[in-house]
Nucleic acid binder design. Structure first.
Lengths: 183, 183
DNA sequence: TTACACATGTAATGAGTTACATGATTTG
DNA sequence: CAAATCATGTAACTCATTACATGTGTAA
């Protein structure tokens, strides 16, 4: 349950409309929390209802931009949330299930799919490394906030690297000749 | 949408009751796909309805074990699923949102929470390494199925290592003295 | 014979996805 | 002005979580 808090954080960084937020969720924020525009609009309405954010103009604006900004109560709610414990996200990845299934009912042609995912993860890894080179040219920054952003970015880099390693290993195994009995 | 396929895979490995599956989802399968017992019972009912698995006894069994096993149609459905492309899971982790929020509204005491998560990930990493030492004492196995299981297990090890690294980095930054203006 | 753990479920709620709808703005 | 695009929504559905309910077997 972090979408509202991801939105509050984004609005704290700077005020934005729903579509602004949607495009930010496709980029920087989306590196660690994804959300569709439908989710975002619905959640913004809830946050405004709760008095944590406000928007202009006040009249209904179908088709027109509506600018949201955070209110003091929203900032407090965010701080409160940071004080609460929360369990780590449980890993839940379909590709790993598929690898396990392939080990039993294979071969099935999962190899092409693995190659496709490998390319996607390599792309993302390259993107993250570009961002790091651009935004943190001198390595880890001294300033606290920037340093935390750098930690998160490096987390993304490690995450993608790990996928590249796993998928490379998987391809090596899948390329082996299959015993007669299998299938 | 992989719970049904995770269940089919588990039942293909060996027949089981709902509670058997629930405990397996707390261990080996849970390393890459988590599910609660409520989800499992509901999904088993659906799979049986679809004719992919069957169970004994046939009468209602509240309080008594019901043994499920996979049917040929279920095996086929699993193979079909392996042929379909599927997008990579999007990363969605609350702790990274919290780190980003902390960078702006902090300090908030998130440090203790990070330390707690660090300990959890270190534990899990140790567990995985024990499993590897026990089940794959000679390193990567030659046999295809076992080799794939080893790939997935090493993926788990890399995943937890990466969290340990990230959280260690985060603690180092959070330990820095905070400038006067923040808060 | 009661208490407890086990096994199988039901119900309510909330989060996320997919498909669709509508008004405003820009561009050929 | 017609078509494409942008921006804001609505609705229906599925998946997951939380809380609760009910029957069985076992051990104090």
């Amino acid at each position: 349950m972090s979408l509202p808090h991801a939105l509050l954080t984004a609005l704290l960084e700077r005020p934005a409309s729903g579509s602004d937020l949607a495009s930010r969720f496709d980029r920087s924020i989306g590196h660690f929390w994804h959300a569709s525009h439908q989710q975002i609009y619905r959640e913004l309405a809830r946050l405004e209802e709760a008095g944590w954010i406000e928007s202009l103009p006040e009249e209904p604006t179908r088709g027109r931009k509506r600018a949201y900004r955070i209110l003091p109560a929203g900032r407090e709610a965010l701080r409160d949330w940071l004080r609460l414990p929360e369990e780590p996200t449980v890993l839940r990845d379909a590709l790993l299930v598929r690898l396990r299934a392939e080990a039993i009912v294979g071969p099935t042609g999962l190899e092409d799919e693995i190659r496709r995912h490998l390319a996607l993860h390599q792309d993302k890894l390259a993107q993250y490394r570009e961002i790091e080179a651009r935004d943190f040219p001198g390595g880890a920054p001294a300033e606290r906030g920037a340093a935390l952003q750098h930690v998160v970015l490096r987390g993304g880099i490690r995450y993608e690297s790990q996928w590249v390693d796993l998928l490379t290993d998987a391809l090596e195994v899948l390329a082996r000749p299959v015993p007669e009995s299998a299938g």
